[in-house]
Each structure stands twice: as C-alpha cells, then as structure tokens.
Nucleic acid binder design. Structure first.
Length: 1054
RNA sequence: GGGCCUAUAGCUCAGUUGGUUAGAGCGCGCGCCUGAUAAGCGCGAGGUCAUUGGUUCAACUCCAAUUAGGCCCA
C-alpha cells in the first residue's frame, strides 16, 4: 500500500464527503462520546435555533466556534456532551402560519380555530429541519440532534411551569402595563425586529394646543403629533430645570419653554414672567375633553420629566400613559391612571362621545376641528418624521399600553450585575458595556404575549371579581390533581389549557389567564428544562449546571444571554455559564448587512459545495477576530484554499511521494510497527533543521493551546497558518529537499521523513478542532496500515508541548539566518544580480554585539540560498562602509525626556569615524547645550551605508553586505549556470522525462565556450547530458541571450 | 436620541505597556526556480493610520468631539 498523493483531480468538497461517509458508517461521533464516558465533564449549552427559518452563513460561524471548542476540550480529555436543542415557540412561527392560511388578524385566527391553528404551528416548526440537519452534517458540526431538547414538549413546558410557579409563589410575578408597538388592523403586538422593518418617512399633523390652567389665568401651550391620543390625556409634562416663560399672544397669556419662543411664534415675544418647569409641578389644568373628566380625580395636572426636549414643540408634552413608553413610565411614577379611549383595534370606545366607533386616523382631523371651534387650537402644522408601519398590512402602528404580566427582575438588579461580572465574556466589552448597560437600566421583564402558539402561562385567576385570588400551577401532577375536569392526553398548549378550570378556595371556578409566555423565557429555561428538571435527571442537571461554555452572536445579549442570566439569578443566584464567546455579524463584502431583498445573502450550502466546509470554517475564524464583523468575500475564501489548504496538502504529498518510493507504509507493516516507530529506528541524528522545526512546532503547540484556552481562536488559527506556510513548507521542506533524494536507508533521509511525519501528524491534531475533515483525511493517510492506530484523529489527544525540544536560541539563530537571506536577496535584486550569478562574499553584522560564532553551522545555508562563495563577519569591512548613528528613542526617551530631539539631531551629525569609535567603545558622547551626555550602545542604533562595489541592507540591528565585484572566474561560473538553466528549460519544453539522457550542441562566443569547457562536468551532470559539443546548431536550435552573449543551443535525446 | 463595536496600502487584516523605517497576504510590477512542477519562491512599488482638537519630549496607540458603517435599545 502507498500513501495517497492527493494529487491530480483532488477536490476538497469531494474529500469531505468521503470523510462524512466514514463518520456515518463508523458512528465516529458516537464512539468518541463512548470513549469519554468516564472523563471529567466540560459542559456546553447549545443555544436553540428555530428550525422554521433557513440556516444562513452566520449560523455556520457560530456553530464552527461551538464545534471547535467542544472538539478541543474533548481532545484534551474531557467528556463533552453536546445536546442539541430547538426553539419552537413564538411569533415568527405564527406569522409563517398566518401567511400560509391567509389570516390577517387575531380575530381571523380565532374564527379559524385556535386548536387547528396551533396544530399547524406545531407542524411548521420543523419546516426547514431537513436543511438544518443537512447543514449540521455538511459543516461537520458534531452535536447530538437525536437527543435534542425541544421547547414545545410537555416535559420542557413542565419545567418552565415549575420555574414560573417558583417565581409566582415568591411574589415575583405581577400584572401591569406594557407599552408595545401594536398594529391596530392585525391586532398584534410587533417585535422590535418587525418594527424596524417598517419605518417610513411621513408627514403627520402636528398641533399646538392651548390647555387652560385651573383657577389661573393662563394656558399651557402643548404640542403633539398624535391628536387621537389627546382624549386619553392624563397629564402635561415639563422639564424641571428648563426655563419657561409666560408671554402674551392675541390677548391670551401662554406658557411655554423660553428656548422655543421664536420657533413657535416666528418672532420674539415680550416675557411677562419666568419660571422653572419645577414651579408648575402638580398644578391642575382643565382637561381638553370630558371623556374621562368625571371618571378620575387623579389626573390632569403638571408633572416633571427629564426626557422633555427643547428642540421641537413647546417644551410642554402631553402625557397619555396608555400610549407611549415614556408616558407610561412617568405615569407610574406619579400614579397617573392609564386612560385609554380606544380599543386595541384602533377604534374609539363607546364612551368616547362623538368619536365612538371611529378609527384613530379618521378621528384626527375631527379632533383638530373640534379643538379649533373650542378655541383651544393655537396652530396646526405638518411634521415630517420616521414612523413605523406594519410590515404586513402597512397600517400605522400605535404605541399602546396593554395589560401584561411582569417578572420583578429589577428587584435582583445587584445580583444580576454581580453574576454578570462573574462571567468571562469574550470580548470583555460585552460584560462591561452592552450587558452591564442593559442590566443597570433593567426594567421588569414583561413575560406575557397575547398570542396563541407558546407556553401557556400557568396562572389561574378566580372568576369571582370580588375574590380575585390567583394560583400558579407548577407541574402536570398538580394540574391533574386540581383541575376540575382534565381530559387526557394532557397537552400543555392553547386551547386545551384555556379550558381547564380550577376551584378557588372561595368555591368559585378559576380560569387561566389567556396569555402565552415570551419565548425568550422558554430558551432561558434550557439549563433546567433540557433535563426536565426537577422532575427527572437531577444528577445530570447537577453536573451540567452551570455551563462551562456557550457561544452565540451579539444580538443575544438582550435575548438568550439575558434570559438565562435572569432566570438563573432569580432561581439559584449564580451565573448560568462561565465563558461566553460572543460573535459579531457577517456582512457582505461591502460591509453591508446581508438581507434577502438586497440579494447579497451568502448561501452556506453553495459556499461549502464550492470551497468545502473546512476552508469555510477556517476563513470565518482566521479572517478577522470573531467579535469583529466579518466582511464575507468568496474571493478571499478562494485565497485561503490556495494558501493554507493547498500548501498543507502539497507538503504532505511531497512527503508521500518520497516515502512511497521507499515503500514506507508496507515496510512498517511488515515490521509490525507504526510508521513513526519504523522511521524512528532508521533515522540518524536530527540536524539543525530538524531540531529547528521540532522546536518551532513545540512552540506552536504552546501558543495554540494557550490561545484556545483563552478562547483567542483567531490568534491560534493564524499561528497555525503561519507555521504551515512559512516555516514548514517554505523553510523546512524547501531547504531539505536534497535529503529526500538520497537512496536506500540513508539515515539523514530517514530523519527528514521522521521529522516531517511527526510535524504533519502534529498539525493534523492541532487543527482537528478547526478543520475536522482535512485533519481526519490526512490522519488516516499518515496512519498507513497501522492496526493499533486510533480510528479517528478526533479520538486522539490534543498535543502537549514537549519543553525539552524547544530551543529558543536555535529559533532565534534560524530567524536571523532567514532575515539575512531575505536582506541578501533584496541587495541582489536592487543591484540587478540574479541568484544564478555567483558572488564572492557576503558579510553579516549581527545586532547588539551578538557574536558571529552563533551562526557557526548555519553559514552554508546563506551560501546556498544566496549563491556566494564565502560568508564572513562584517567586522573588517569598515573601510568600505560608512557609518551613521540613529537614536533609539524607546531606550533613550525616558532618560533624556525633553532633550530627546536634540540628542537625535546631534547623533545624526556624528561623522562616520565617530560612530565607528562609539560602536567599538560602547559609548557615544554628545554635548547638549554644553552638558556632556553619554549614550550607551543600547540607546544608539548604528547604520551602515554602502560604498561602491558593495550592496548593504539592514533591518533592525541586522545588517548585511554583498560584495558585488565580479571576477572573470565568477563570471564564467555565471555563464555555466545560465547555460544549465537554458538547457533545463529546453528539456522541459521538449517534453523529455527527468531521467532522459541528452546531447547538447552549443554555438556561442569564445567567452561562453571557455566557460562551458571549464565547467563541462558541472553542466553535464546537472542536465543529464552525455555530451556537450560546440558546433553549428542543428534543427531544433534556439537562440538565447546568455548574460549578454548570443548563444544558440540545441538538445536531442540519445 | 442613548449604549457598545469598527475605521490602518487598491482589497482583507496585524500592530504588544505611547518611542521616529507602521507590518502580512491577495492584487499589481519585475525577477527566480524547474527532482513538491497546470505547483513553488523572491524582490519591488503602494499609507496624511477616517477627520478635528487635546495630553506628552514623543500619539496609529491615550482623551474629547465629528463623520461613516455595524449591533442593541429608545
């Protein structure tokens, strides 16, 4: 058996499909879990997605992170149970079904039948389950979907009920009002997401109304853009610290904010009196309408609020607590009644006098007309603003206060903040910024939704108004016991739960409140409800609460993150998870949000079919830090494939190519040992390159482990990428190719095999959490016929760094060598000296008096890479180089302070000799304004400048000099190498095999001929030429320019 | 309107506790290699570090404001 070279028509997506088939047929995920059974737990919570929407590319990144951390921890010896989950309740499901059934509002749903409607909802919840299963499998996300928790099951709901009862019995749930955007036509509250979709710039009437003060001779000038809310007015609000004035206008005394006089009247007005807003607090006024005038004595006075702005209007705001969140909140503070003259459907109530039965927008002009005839209208304008409309029916939304059930989260504010602080957030700004901000401004959690498809809130209220007792039910058992008549099977949903009656202590019947639960409460209950705790699995729950790790996108701050923290805090006063990696969104390549109607949505299936799942995963992690928005660009993804994946595969197939020639797989199998053991037995001593790459590899293991442990995923992935491309492929393999060409069991070759084998195997394991497919594929190849080998790379242990193999000095030296090579190439390139032309000498000057001896044993690398005859220390080259000195600001700055610039100037003025002397003595003396200042060699950087015949390049403290003078001997060798190059080109273009022997005919100048004769053997052995003759060109001759000498060459196979 | 994040080369991104030559990959230009070969490698050009002000001997880095994009909330 041979290693598969993974060449020719290799395709990543096709290879991944093979790995998937292997995982499936051998149940690899399951087997991994079995192996981990007795290991310590690393607890992961899956944030449940909703399967009634299609999966997008952003799901791929979030699941890649989850998968990566779970696989990493599993390889580190933890048991990582990965229970899946599905979020199944909520408005999106209902809307989907309404669309399907062409229902437009709640009334129509009721008419259609709640039972049937909810059955449809239940059926549609997993509408795209197939796509979710496909993407989960295709991207290599290992999660247990067979045992997933589902929020609509009786078990799950029962746990949620248990939590709710706990809260209810602790008196933490109460009934209040919640202001929400409401579509009067659909009779539905809208989520903020839906509201955001429907903003339009429109012109609304904006009216200024004179409101008479009670028992005083003036009017408040009040501004509003929603005339239809005026009949529900309860108060006027002024800013307590703002300046208000009384002015006279057409014989009437009016009060308004001083800052707005000219805006309101179009001119200045004489100020009769000045006040602060606070001066008016609690002063009564005469209501504009008498609808509520006789119904309450608690309203119709001036209140103070900070939110009043002096930019528009009059600085006096009309307050209708029934409409508008600010209004409601301040109303609560002052104990104002919630007055609502309209029904939820936007129709004025019966008691609303002449407006009864009118739709709000139709009532607007009539209200304005009535105010005018009553002499209360000051003026009317049109006001342009963004206003939300229903995205379904295009009706203007109204902000309306609805009765709602609340959880007293504000009571736990301090604990919430404390528990939030105990969580490691990645990045930390979420903890200290977004989440803290949210918690500090915490308002009680509005739990209820006036909808159909959700967890029914298990609170029953006595039908007898006078009794009004309430009771929470916390289990099915309790329900069975207390219900008057409960049919089986029990289904914890509407409408069944609406029909269940309990008996009150007073003897009356109790009816369940009609609302369902906010579905964020469902998902926030998952730490308990996924186990059906406390009814079952108590042990399991105790082990798996709290979680070690979760990860979702930043939009979950106020969603799942908050709901989990809130419930966990109130229930057990501890954080529900310890580490949370929060991702940013994925934008299109222009940095714009992806959205369906823009058509810039990336289809994850298409991406993975085209590039593969591993490159997609790699790209999403490596391209930018995961908490920075990623601009998704398929071109960059293609680059990832070329750079990283192709390089890794090429490195592997280079190894495989030669190892196959030596039949490594079969010989190891014959010997009955692993390939590594086989190679190890035959390998010679590691040389400097072997020790270097192993040292770098061990350092990489350390770096990757450290970064994964800190959830610095991007840094870890980038470190691996750099190692594979630059160090393994580009430096180790390139510099050691010749070792692989040796024949037989050459020990140096076997050591090279072994080194490359070990590093490749190590890289497989290091990357297994990131690129599970590629790692698996290479791992299986590298294992050959070894019967002892683990079934899967995912069953192996994550590499641990072997400190004894780390040689920092060696890494540093090799780094200098690489740098010197790079500088030498730059020098050659600048002087137009191709590498084929040998040069006499290369001089190296090391930073900070580092001894040249350090490079001992590495100089041949410089000779080979740079094609020079000799490499030596730069010391004796003073005569050809001029020196100048520059100040090292970082070193000298703190000591010199304000003198730093002067010192830098003076240092620049030193002569070459002075600098050279300074470098030798280690002291640079300058005089700053008469004072002598001595700078140490640490504080000064010496720069060498080249003179004629030399090429100097410097970087940091390292500086190299190329002697560019060419002797005739060097030139001759240059001709010879040039000839070799051209002959090789012709071999190739003639289609010869690499082993074909040839005959070469040359026709050229004397100079070239001389050079060719002198290097005859070299040329022939390099080009596999039996003969090199000088004659007239034959048939296939080609003209070449050999370093300026015209030459014709022909090659024939012998 | 409030909170948070982002802005560095044509593109995608690095840039340690502030230190004077701001890095890498792609793309582009030039070249090299031809025993990893429909691959590989090198060198080069390219930047007012979004704008404005401040702190400092010294600011891409710290502070403030502004502009643009993103997220969340009003």
């Amino acid at each position: 058996m041979k290693f598969d070279l993974l060449k020719d028509d290799f395709s990543i997506p096709a290879a991944e499909e093979k790995v998937l088939a292997f995982w499936d047929t051998r149940s690899v995920f399951h087997q991994c879990n079995e192996l981990a059974k007795d290991k310590p737990h690393f607890v992961f919570y899956e944030g449940p997605p909703t399967a009634n929407g299609v999966p997008g590319i952003h799901h791929v990144i979030s699941r890649t992170i989850k998968d990566l951390i779970c696989r990493y921890k599993a390889m580190q010896g933890f048991r990582v149970d990965r229970k899946g989950g599905w979020d199944t309740h909520g408005l999106p499901v209902e809307i989907e079904v309404e669309k399907q059934l062409k229902l437009e509002n709640k009334a129509q749903v009721i008419e259609y039948g709640v039972a049937e409607f909810n059955a449809k909802c239940k059926a549609s919840v997993f509408k795209y389950l197939d796509q979710w299963n496909r993407i989960t499998r295709r991207m290599g996300y290992w999660i247990d979907l067979d045992d997933a928790y589902v929020t609509l099951t009786n078990e799950y709901i029962e746990s949620v009920w248990w939590i709710l009862k706990n809260f209810f019995d602790r008196d933490l749930i109460y009934k209040g009002y919640k202001t929400l955007p409401f579509c009067p036509r659909c009779e539905t509250g809208l989520s903020s997401h839906e509201v955001a979709q429907g903003y339009q710039l429109i012109k609304d009437p904006s009216i200024f109304v004179k409101v008479k003060a009670a028992d005083e001779d003036f009017s408040y000038l009040v501004w509003t853009t929603t005339p239809w809310t005026l009949p529900s007015n309860a108060a006027l609000c002024m800013h307590p610290e703002a300046d208000y004035v009384m002015v006279e206008h057409e014989g009437e005394k009016l009060v308004l904010a001083e800052a707005l006089i000219s805006k309101v009247f179009g001119e200045d007005k004489e100020v009769l009196k000045r006040f602060k807003g606070a001066d008016f607090e609690r002063r009564q006024y005469i209501p504009l309408f008498d609808i509520f005038a006789d119904k309450t004595d608690k309203a119709f006075y001036v209140i103070n609020g900070d939110f009043v702005t002096l930019e528009d209007g009059t600085g006096i705001v009309h307050i209708a607590p029934g409409f508008g969140a600010d209004d409601y909140e301040i109303g609560q503070k002052y104990g104002l009644p919630v007055l609502q003259a309209i029904e939820a459907n936007g129709i004025f109530k019966d008691f609303a006098g002449k407006y009864a039965g009118m739709f709000i927008k139709d009532a607007d002009p009539i209200i304005i007309k009535d105010l005018k005839s009553a002499g209360r209208l000051f003026k009317k304008e049109l006001y342009e603003h963004n206003y939300p409309f229903c995205w379904r029916c295009d009706s203007p939304l109204v902000y309306i206060a609805r009765q709602s059930w609340y959880l007293k989260t504000t009571q736990f504010k301090d604990q919430l903040i404390r528990n939030n602080n105990a969580i490691n957030w990645y990045p930390d700004e979420i903890r200290s910024g977004r989440m803290l901000d949210w918690l500090e401004n915490n308002v009680d959690w509005a739990l209820s939704r006036e909808r159909f498809w959700g967890t029914p809130i298990p609170i029953w209220v006595c039908d007898d108004d006078k009794c009004g007792k309430m009771r929470a039910v916390g289990s099915i058992e309790q329900l069975r016991k207390e219900a008057k008549d409960l049919s089986e099977p029990v289904e914890l949903h509407k409408p069944m739960m609406d029909e269940v009656k309990l008996t009150c202590e007073c003897g009356s019947e109790m009816t369940r409140i009609p609302e369902v639960l906010d579905c964020w409460f469902d998902s926030g209950s998952m730490p308990y409800a996924q186990w059906h705790y406390p009814f079952e699995n108590e042990d399991e729950f105790k082990i798996k609460y709290p979680a070690d790790f979760i990860s979702e996108a930043v939009d979950q701050t106020r969603g799942w993150f908050y709901s989990m923290i809130a419930i966990s805090t109130i229930l057990y006063d501890q954080p529900p998870f310890k580490n949370n990696v929060v991702m940013e969104f994925i934008l299109d390549k222009e940095g714009k949000k992806m959205s369906k109607h823009k058509g810039n949505v990336t289809d994850p299936f298409e991406t993975m079919d085209r590039f593969g799942a591993d490159p997609t995963r790699w790209y999403l992690l490596a391209n930018s830090a995961i908490w920075v928005p990623t601009k998704f660009d398929p071109d960059t993804l293609a680059e990832v494939v070329r750079k990283y994946f192709d390089t890794l595969r090429n490195t592997y197939s280079f190894f495989a190519l030669y190892a196959n020639i030596d039949e490594v797989v079969d010989k190891a199998a014959e010997a009955g040992v692993s390939i590594e053991t086989y190679l190890d037995k035959k390998a010679g001593e590691p040389d400097r390159f072997d020790r270097w790459i192993m040292s770098r590899y061990q350092s990489l293991v350390k770096e990757v482990t450290g970064n994964f442990d800190k959830y610095e995923i991007t840094k870890a992935v980038r470190a691996i990428q750099h190692f594979v491309i630059e160090e393994l492929s580009n430096w180790y393999v390139r510099n050691n190719r010749r070792r692989f060409w040796a024949t037989g069991d050459d020990p140096a070759k076997m050591r090279a095999y072994l080194t490359l084998y070990r590093v490749l195997l190590g890289v497989c394991k290091l990357t297994a959490p990131v690129t599970p497919f590629t790692s698996e594929m290479l791992f299986k190849e590298l294992m050959g016929l070894d019967k002892e080998a683990p079934l899967s790379v995912h069953m192996t242990s994550f590499p641990k760094p072997d400190e004894t193999l780390i040689d920092k000095q060696l890494e540093k030296t090799m780094g200098l060598i690489e740098k010197a090579v790079s500088l030498g190439r730059a020098a050659r390139s600048r002087k137009n000296l191709k590498v084929r032309q040998p040069l006499a000498e290369f001089l190296v000057s090391l930073p900070n008096q580092m001894s040249f001896d350090k490079l001992e044993g590495f100089l041949d690398i410089l000779r080979d890479e740079l094609n020079v005859k000799k490499v030596s220390a730069a010391g004796r080259l003073d005569q050809y180089v001029s020196y100048s000195a520059k100040l090292n600001f970082k070193a000298a700055g703190p000591r010199l302070g304000g003198d730093v610039k002067k010192a830098a100037d003076l240092l620049n003025q030193l002569t070459s000799d002075q600098v050279r002397e300074g470098e030798q003595t280690g002291e640079f003396k300058i005089a700053i304004e008469g004072r002598e200042v001595v700078l140490s060699s640490e504080e000064v950087q010496v720069v060498r400048m080249e003179k004629e015949g030399f090429a100097v390049e410097s970087d940091g403290g390292l500086s190299v000099t190329l002697v560019t003078e060419l002797s005739e001997e060097l030139l001759q060798e240059g001709f010879a190498r040039e000839l070799v190059n051209k002959i090789q080109n012709m071999r190739k273009s003639s289609g010869f095999e690499v082993t074909d022997r040839i005959r070469v005919t040359l026709n050229s100048t004397e100079r070239v001929k001389l050079a060719a004769q002198r290097h005859d053997e070299f040329i022939r052995s390099e080009t596999l030429a039996d003969e090199l003759e000088f004659a007239q060109a034959t048939g296939n001759a080609k003209e070449w320019n050999i370093n300026g000498e015209k030459t014709s060459i022909s090659v024939v196979k012998v």
